[in-house]
């Protein structure tokens, strides 16, 4: 047991999410898991994008970096490569992660940096007031799809698996305890960990409510799912509509993280190296003579 408590993450800034927003559950789960793992506020770096959910670091006493829409994974990757002693987390929205930042999502999944990626997936663009997102179901009416969404929705857990991710999980904001467990496992996993979180938005998504999810979600660990079984994981990832699995869908142990394979980082975090450790570039210069 560590002496870090949830209170250590309290900030003088209070969350301004709508009452009932799923982001509260995610926020609570995140603080709980950091405290549980004994990660102090100064030891973590929480990187976010832009959106309702991405405001999370603002409400928390922790090293926070709120970047631009869609780019937190790239910023976090740079931070992790430069200081892998930090516990680096990304918290962003479905628009950030699967829309504008989709390219970073697929490449980070196959790159496997030790980053825990929590996506507050409310299936809508909430901060901009209700346009469809990549995870909005086909046919859904939103302000930019008055006739219903034409495109098929992205299945983020399937995409992450297809890209070679080594830890793929789904949580539910209405089950913060369960979610905290997933985040803890994600942080402990020494590689990229996707935790896609079903997040009710009580204002702009009137379909996928707490009640709607409550009737459908079931816990994979209770159902006897083996996350090391890729074929089973594929089947589970395809489930939606009537029964929605939450828990660890897939994991693969033993794959080295990206930064562990970078020779320059063998001796420790980059930021701890002296800037003058290349005392003399004379040897390099002679190669040009």
């Amino acid at each position: 047991m560590s002496d870090i408590t949830v209170k250590d993450f309290d900030s003088w800034v209070k969350p301004s999410w709508c009452p009932g927003c799923g982001d509260y559950g995610i926020f609570a789960a995140l603080k709980h898991s950091l405290a549980e793992l004994g990660v102090a506020p100064h030891e973590a770096l929480v990187v976010s994008g832009i959106g309702c959910g991405s405001k999370l670091p603002d409400y928390m006493h922790v090293n926070g970096l709120m970047t631009i829409h869609g780019r937190p994974l790239a910023v976090a990757t740079g931070a992790k490569l430069a200081n892998h002693a930090l516990t680096v987390l990304v918290v962003d929205g479905d628009g950030d992660a699967y829309g504008i930042g989709g390219n970073h999502f697929i490449h980070t999944a196959r790159r496997n940096p030790d980053i825990t990626h929590i996506v507050e997936n409310n299936q809508i663009y909430a901060l901009t007031k209700g346009q469809y997102s990549p995870t909005t179901p086909q046919g859904r009416v939103t302000t930019t799809s008055p006739e219903g969404v034409i495109e098929r929705a992205v299945n983020p857990v399937a995409v992450a698996m297809a890209m070679g991710a080594t830890f793929v999980a789904r949580g539910f904001a209405g089950e913060p305890k369960h979610l905290a467990g997933l985040i803890e496992e994600g942080i402990r996993h020494p590689g990229y960990a996707l935790i896609d979180v079903l997040q009710p938005c009580v204002v702009f998504n009137r379909v996928n409510t707490y009640a709607w999810y409550g009737e459908r979600v079931y816990k994979l660990e209770e159902a006897g799912h083996d996350p090391y079984d890729r074929a089973a994981a594929q089947r589970v990832a395809a489930e939606w509509d009537d029964r929605i699995p939450i828990g660890v869908i897939l994991r693969e142990d033993g794959a080295p993280s990206y930064e562990r394979q970078v020779p320059a980082l063998n001796a420790g975090p980059l930021v701890e190296r002296s800037l003058t450790d290349v005392a003399d570039i004379g040897a390099l210069l002679r190669r040009f003579m």
């Binding site: 990187v47 910023v75 740079g78 200081n83 980059l270 800037l275």
Partner: peptide
């Protein structure tokens, strides 16, 4: 963005 992340935590 990677360079920004690295610079933010102290790398040149």
């Amino acid at each position: 963005c990677m360079a920004i992340g690295a610079a933010h935590v102290g790398a040149r």
